[in-house]
Design a protein around this nucleic acid. Structure first.
Length: 355
DNA sequence: AAGCCGGGGTT
DNA sequence: AACCCAGGCTT
C-alpha cells in the first residue's frame, strides 16, 4: 500500500476510535477557547498531562484571559509556573500575551504564520491551537504524533533529525482530515498517550494496527529510535543561605537568560571558604554562625549540578543595603509570589529546621 | 543542523 | 538508572 493510500485511511479509523475511547474531560477541553488551548499547549510542551493538570487549573483561574495575563507581574506568572520547569515557556507566554494585547486587540491571531511569530509558539503548537480551538485543518507533530506516524509508516531511526522531521511533517499533513480536524488532532495525541506508547504499545487495541508498517515488520519497539546519547557534564555551586534570626532568607533574581531564568535563587559564592568574605562584602559584617549543609544534587537534562548550601546566620536588625529589584528577603511564613526553582523551594522549606 | 532548556513519570 | 514527555529558541 502506498503511503498516500495509507494516509487517506487513517482519519476515519482514528475518529471512530476516538469517539469511543478518546479523552474528552481534560481541563482545557472544556471551553476550548484559543487562550485556554494556548496556555495548555505551552504547559504541555515536554511535560505530561498528569503533571500539567493542577498547574493549568491554578493558572487559568488566576489569569482567565490574555489581558489579565499581559497586565500581571512576571513574578506572579513565574510563581504559578514554579515546579513545572522550562521557565522560558512562562516568560515567552507572558511576552506573547503583551503582543496579543497590544497588536492583536487581545485576540490570538487565527493565521498560522502570525501565531508562529509569537514567542514560544512553533509550528506544532500553532497547529494545535488552530485545530483544537477553531476546528481548522492544521497538522501537528508533537511527541505522540511523531511516534504514531513513525511506527505507522515505518520511519526508522531517530525522529529528531531535520530529514526525518520533513518526512514526518509531510505525513502529518497528509493524514489530517478536512472534516473534524479538532477531534482528529485530539485523537492522534490520545492514541499516542494511551495505546501507541513508547514502552508497551497495545497493538491489539490499536485502530491502526492492521495497517501499521512497524507492527508487521516487528519493529514496534525499535521505532522511534532513542535520541543520540550525550554526556552529562558535572558542575558544582556554593549557595549562600543568608538567614536572619527572624527567619528571612536573602534571594537574588537570576538573569532572564540561562538556567532558572527570571527565578529567584540563593546567591552564589566561589567556594565554601569564601562565604565569610561574601558576607563582609554584601552586608559589611561577618555572620554569627556558619553551617555547611549536606550537598544537594540536582539533575538537569544536560548537566548535573552539585550544590553545597552554606547557611550564614545574622541578626534580624543587621543593616543591609539592597539595590534595585534584584534582591529579596524571603519569608517562608509570608512567601512572596515569585518564581522559585524546585530545589530552591525545597531548601527554603528547610530553613529553620536546623535552628 | 545541532545544542540548550528542567522537572517528573515510567520502566 | 535510563529514557522520555502535547517543542521551541539560539547559534
Amino acid at each position: 500500500m502506498s503511503r498516500a493510500t495509507l494516509a487517506r485511511r487513517v482519519a476515519p479509523l482514528l475518529l471512530e476510535w476516538w469517539d469511543v475511547h478518546g479523552r474528552k474531560d481534560l481541563s482545557w477541553q472544556r471551553d476550548p477557547s484559543p487562550y485556554r488551548v494556548w496556555v495548555a499547549e505551552i504547559m504541555l510542551q515536554q511535560t505530561q498531562v498528569a503533571t500539567v493538570e493542577r498547574y493549568y487549573q491554578r493558572f487559568v483561574n488566576r489569569f482567565p484571559d490574555v489581558t489579565t495575563l499581559a497586565g500581571a507581574d512576571l513574578d506572579a506568572v513565574l510563581h504559578l509556573w514554579s515546579g513545572l520547569g522550562y521557565y522560558a515557556r512562562a516568560r515567552n507566554l507572558y511576552r506573547a500575551a503583551g503582543v496579543v494585547r497590544d497588536e492583536y486587540d487581545g485576540a490570538l491571531p487565527t493565521d498560522l504564520d502570525a501565531l508562529m511569530n509569537l514567542p514560544g509558539i512553533g509550528r506544532s503548537t500553532a497547529g494545535a491551537i488552530l485545530a483544537l480551538s477553531g476546528d481548522r485543518r492544521h497538522p501537528i507533530l508533537d511527541g505522540n504524533a511523531k511516534r504514531v506516524l513513525a511506527r505507522l509508516f515505518g520511519i526508522a531511526g531517530w525522529t529528531g533529525s531535520a530529514a526525518k522531521l520533513r518526512v514526518l511533517w509531510d505525513l502529518a499533513d497528509a493524514c489530517t482530515p478536512a472534516v473534524r480536524p479538532a477531534h482528529y488532532t485530539q485523537a492522534i495525541m490520545d492514541l499516542g498517550a494511551t495505546v501507541c506508547t513508547r514502552g508497551r504499545p497495545d497493538c491489539e487495541r490499536c485502530p491502526l494496527g492492521r495497517m501499521c508498517v512497524a507492527r508487521h515488520a516487528g519493529l514496534t519497539l525499535s521505532i522511534p529510535a532513542p535520541r543520540p546519547r550525550r554526556e552529562r557534564p558535572q558542575r558544582a555551586a556554593v549557595l549562600v543561605m543568608l538567614v536572619r534570626d527572624d527567619g528571612a532568607v536573602l534571594l537574588e533574581r537570576r538573569p532572564d537568560s540561562g538556567v532558572w531564568g527570571g527565578l529567584w535563587c540563593f546567591p552564589e559564592a566561589e567556594t565554601v571558604a569564601a562565604v565569610g568574605d561574601w558576607c563582609l562584602n554584601r552586608i559589611g559584617s561577618a555572620p554569627r554562625q556558619v553551617i555547611v549543609r549536606p550537598v544537594v544534587s540536582h539533575r538537569f537534562t544536560h548537566f548535573d549540578l552539585d550544590m553545597t548550601p552554606v547557611e550564614a546566620r545574622i541578626a534580624a536588625d543587621t543593616p543591609c543595603v539592597m539595590d534595585g529589584d534584584r534582591w529579596l528577603w524571603y519569608n517562608r511564613y509570608k512567601p512572596a509570589a515569585v518564581g522559585l526553582a524546585a530545589p530552591v523551594a525545597r531548601l527554603l522549606e528547610s530553613v529553620g529546621e536546623l535552628i
